[in-house]
């Protein structure tokens, strides 16, 4: 479904602030695979998500989604194939519009959106049915402005909107990080339910090791713009939170093993 080849991106090249954010990423994501990307701060995980979403164009490398080479597609064109949920629960919805109106906008993703009446009884019923699946009691508040909802409720609706038209790829960028713990757990469970039910291909950036272990089929770990671990298949099946913490520790220790260590400590290993 998603093929990434030799993807690189350097920000501020040739300046003192140069950051080699992606250093030749190769990644294949099969149809229906739900993958989490974890990594240290600055590891490149959000940059990779943004590169796929088209927030910027890569320096080198190619991106292929659902058989389309999208490397040069602008962000809005990629939006016809990609659904996104951001960290900020207020980023994916229009606060002044009602729940129903927000949903209708989502149902017309990639289509012309005019000024005619959007909500027929049939549409309203369909919206209420889908929102009922969130189990938050929002189906009775379709006319309420979405800005009156809590962060957790709003993020759950954003998730529903992003997946309404079954995107070819769902991108989740730390989408529970700004929520309180209870809401975060609720949205995490919803994410798993929706991705599984709709058989979506999804890429989720998270800092939560618990989520990384509980939700996806595959766990990818990034460090310094590279993929350094890829837990899939049998290896994924036995991975625990502790294993991920060890993996973080391993890459951190590797950074601390510099040439001064090699010079002074290694002779004791001779």
């Amino acid at each position: 479904m998603l093929k990434i080849r030799s993807l690189t991106k350097t920000f501020f090249p040739g300046t003192p602030n140069e950051v080699r954010a992606l250093r030749g990423i190769d990644l294949d994501l099969a149809d229906g695979c739900f993958a989490a990307i974890i990594g240290t701060n600055g590891s490149g995980k959000s940059t990779l998500l943004n590169a796929v979403a088209g927030t910027f164009l890569p320096d080198t490398g190619t991106l292929e989604l659902d058989g389309h080479t999208i490397t040069d597609w602008p962000e809005h064109r990629r939006a016809t194939l990609v659904g996104r949920v951001f960290q900020n629960p207020f980023a994916g919805t229009a606060a002044e519009m009602s729940i129903a109106e927000n949903i209708v906008l989502a149902t017309r993703r990639g289509q012309p959106r005019g000024l005619g009446f959007a909500l027929s009884h049939k549409t309203r019923d369909e919206i209420a049915d889908r929102i009922r699946s969130l189990k938050m009691g929002l189906e009775d508040r379709l006319e309420n402005p979405i800005g009156t909802l809590s962060g957790g409720q709003r993020q759950a609706l954003t998730l529903l909107m992003a997946t309404w038209l079954r995107p070819k790829l769902l991108l989740l960028d730390e989408h529970t990080a700004a929520l309180d713990p209870k809401s975060a757990a609720q949205v995490a469970v919803l994410t798993k339910e929706i991705v599984t039910r709709e058989k979506l291909t999804a890429l989720m950036v998270t800092h939560s090791m618990q989520q990384a272990v509980q939700l996806p089929d595959r766990i990818i770990m990034m460090h310094h713009g590279n993929i350094v671990e890829d837990y899939s298949g049998e290896r994924r099946a036995r991975v625990r939170t502790d294993d991920l913490m060890h993996a973080f520790d391993r890459v951190r220790r590797r950074d601390l093993f510099d040439s001064t260590v090699a010079e002074t400590v290694l002779p004791q290993y001779a």
């Binding site: 951190r252 220790r253 590797r254 950074d255 601390l256 093993f257 260590v261 090699a262 290694l266 290993y269």
Partner: peptide, 9 residues
Amino acid sequence: VREWLSFSG
């Protein structure tokens, strides 16, 4: 050597 040995750091 970092491929072979891990240092506690």
